[in-house]
Design a protein around this nucleic acid. Structure first.
Length: 334
DNA sequence: GGTCCACCGGAAAACTCGGGCC
DNA sequence: GGCCCGAGTTTTCCGGTGGACC
């Protein structure tokens, strides 16, 4: 049933993209100076999850590299590499310059100096989920690195620009902003059609069922492809010749919770405990939350650390909160 | 309006951990 | 093995905020 599982994976970069011509063209124009060996101005791609920001950034840079120029490029997920050190390390790794760098004993300044000394073809760095960067001043330092082009990706424009200082703000005001909207239902259906053609045997799903998947995904391509993947697996596991409607309906909640679970899995034990308590209660006050947290773990952290964990959970959209001071309530989002 | 209290979050200090060096 | 260094994490301190109460 599945002929090529890769095309159903979220990280798959297709050889052609649909419904993002304007965005691809704008980004291509921004990157045009690279064809002359000159670095390009930064670009800022923003919009909700599953709207193709990362895919388009990688696709456009890859196409540029294939078609015309000698360009180095590196993708950095700032969710995982959120510290200044980790981000710099990954960027240096993209130009094979980390051989004698030790994660615990090399000063951060050494990493930046080494990046500044880089002499090679233009270097494009995609900073995905850039709002997760702990130290936004790194963007200013990267901006000053000769031959380095930054593509910044985030969900909300304000989450990035609210936290950066005036030096960088004044420079980034000239950055090209590319907004990504949710896909329409028909756009998602076309995207799914391609994935079916590339990765599944013919005639196992009809247009009506693809429309159903698109409707369930509510404009999010990542969810749509996830539903298709899980439905295909389920049908294959049950030796079915096609993907029936009830299987699609069955895998929708599973797919959505699967995506959320990927976030939860990245939490530390203490963060998971806090998340579990809030989920168990639905809503809970800070003191009651801390009391139960102390009961559930053997080595409880201080209230201040717990507050840091909670703000992280909130930032990941795993929990919500209401009220600012005394009447504060934490609540589960599912 | 004044006071108390619970809570938040920034800043800085303290601590932990891992690697290099002698 | 002991010391030093640096990154990351946690703790401490403290000012600010807003609701409750008098």
């Amino acid at each position: 049933m599945i002929t090529d599982a890769r095309v159903l994976q979220p990280e798959f970069i297709p050889s052609e993209v649909k419904h993002r011509d304007a965005e691809v063209n704008t980004l291509s124009s921004v990157l045009r100076p690279l064809t002359d060996g000159v670095r390009a101005d930064p670009a800022f791609l923003y919009g909700p999850s599953g709207t193709g920001k990362t895919c388009i950034a990688q696709f456009t840079v890859e196409r540029l590299r294939q078609e015309v120029v000698d360009v180095n490029y590196q993708y950095v997920n700032c969710w995982e590499d959120y510290s200044r050190f980790k981000t710099l390390y990954t960027i240096l790794d993209g130009i094979n310059n980390t051989i004698d760098i030790h994660r615990q004993s090399t000063p951060k300044d050494v990493l930046l100096d080494r990046l500044k000394d880089y002499t090679g073809p233009p270097y494009v760095v995609i900073l995905d989920e850039v709002d997760q960067l702990q130290d936004k001043s790194l963007l200013y330092d990267l901006y000053r690195v000769k031959d380095l082009t930054m593509l910044l990706i985030a969900n909300k424009e304000t989450e990035v620009f609210a936290e950066i200082d005036d030096r960088l703000t004044s420079r980034l005001t000239t950055a090209t902003r590319i907004h990504f909207d949710h896909y329409s239902r028909s756009e998602l259906t076309t995207i799914l059609n391609d994935r079916v053609q590339w990765g599944l045997v013919p005639n196992i799903i009809d247009q009506e069922r693809l429309n159903l998947i698109a409707a369930k995904a509510a404009g999010d391509a990542r969810i749509a492809i996830g539903i298709l993947r899980n439905a295909a697996r389920h049908a294959h596991g049950n030796s079915l010749d096609e993907i029936p409607t009830d299987v699609i309906r069955d895998v929708v909640p599973e797919t959505k919770s699967e995506i959320q679970q990927q976030t939860i899995d990245r939490l530390t034990d203490h963060q998971q405990t806090l998340y579990d308590i809030i989920t168990d209660h639905g809503t809970i006050e800070p003191q009651a939350l801390y009391d139960e947290y102390q009961e559930r773990v053997t080595d409880p952290k201080t209230k201040r650390t717990v507050r840091n964990h909670l703000s992280k959970l909130e930032h990941y959209n795993l929990i919500g909160s209401e009220g600012n001071t005394k009447g504060r309530i934490y609540r589960a989002l599912t």
